[in-house]
Nucleic acid binder design. Structure first.
Length: 287
DNA sequence: GCCCAGGTGAAGC
DNA sequence: GCTTCACATGGG
């Protein structure tokens, strides 16, 4: 309540920070043992685990901590989510492999821009592109003494003022015109990201897909990771491989059919199930 | 060198 | 409608 402390402790269980920060939903968290260091909105923050709790530290005393509680989704009861998964062999394996994996609740613009940049890129490269973008066009942030400089994620207005050549110099290749055009549509007010939260899933998805560089998959990522639509089910190459391998072995199944299967099979937290399958496929060795 | 990476949009049947 | 292709860049 005071707004004078830079450190705050939160009770915590069923929360794997590493899995959550490295599973391909957010791209700016960095591991500096024993801390995870990141930026959410205008806050630089580092977090570390102690028995049963999470210790969070900022560079400047925040007025409150609600932004962090919301971003990390600390109030979500993960056991309720996992209990709602279908009780089948693939999901049991994924839950065992990814225990404590959470979905974050990110800023819509950062999430949208990040996934426009994600197409046919490996996660490590997406991180590099975004780091360059933030370094060049973000606002420098206050960080704790002795820590490397960090910046905000650049606003739509800021990116609307750069050139395609500027963006290409961040090594984002053919994604540059998409990001630029989308930033300009949002900065100009032609497209309102705030309006989507109140829409039904399908309508919000259709709106997002009118943006350049945003197809079904990117739209579903934004709906799930930023707006919290629990039924959004991003179907990328990894999840497609997971579904085909685990649920439709030795059969030819179209993406459309996989979408229909996903919509009926995984229950009210299908988006979480998708993230478990994605992380499970990407981290399991052999088999 | 080759193939692939959390795809999308446009052009071709 | 569905299929094919180009699009930058870098890692394995």
């Amino acid at each position: 309540m005071t707004g004078v402390e830079t450190t705050r402790t939160f009770a915590l269980r069923d929360y794997d920070l590493e899995a959550t920060f490295t599973c391909g939903q957010a791209f700016r968290w960095q591991w500096h043992d024993p801390y995870w260091v990141g930026v959410t909105g205008a806050h630089w923050v580092r977090v570390r685990r102690e028995p049963g709790v999470l210790v969070a530290e900022t560079a400047e005393p925040p007025a409150d901590w609600e932004w962090l509680v919301h971003y990390l989704q600390l109030e979500v009861d993960l056991s309720e989510v996992v209990r709602a998964f279908p009780d089948d062999k693939p999901m049991r394996a994924a839950v065992t492999a990814c225990r404590g994996l959470r979905l974050l609740r990110q800023d819509p613009w950062e999430c949208l821009a990040s996934f426009i940049l994600s197409s046919t890129k490996q996660i490590v490269q997406i991180r590099q592109i975004i780091a360059r973008l933030c370094e060049r066009y973000g606002e420098p942030l206050a960080v704790a003494p002795g820590w490397p400089p960090m910046s905000t994620f650049p606003s739509p207005a800021r990116l609307a003022r750069v050139t395609e050549t500027d963006l290409r110099s961040c090594r984002m290749g053919f994604r540059a015109p998409y990001l630029l055009a989308t930033a300009r549509m949002i900065a100009s007010g032609q497209f309102d990201l705030d309006r989507l939260q109140a829409l039904p899933l399908e309508a919000a998805r259709a709106e997002l897909m009118t943006l350049p560089g945003v197809g079904r998959k990117v739209a579903d990522c934004v709906l799930l990771f930023a707006y919290g639509f629990q039924l959004a089910f991003p179907l990328d190459v990894w999840v497609m491989k997971a579904l085909r391998q685990l649920y439709f072995p030795r059969r030819r199944v179209s993406p459309q059919r996989l979408h229909r299967f996903a919509a009926t099979h995984f229950g009210p937290f299908a988006g979480y199930a998708q993230q478990y399958l994605f992380h499970y496929m990407r981290t399991r060795h052999g088999t």
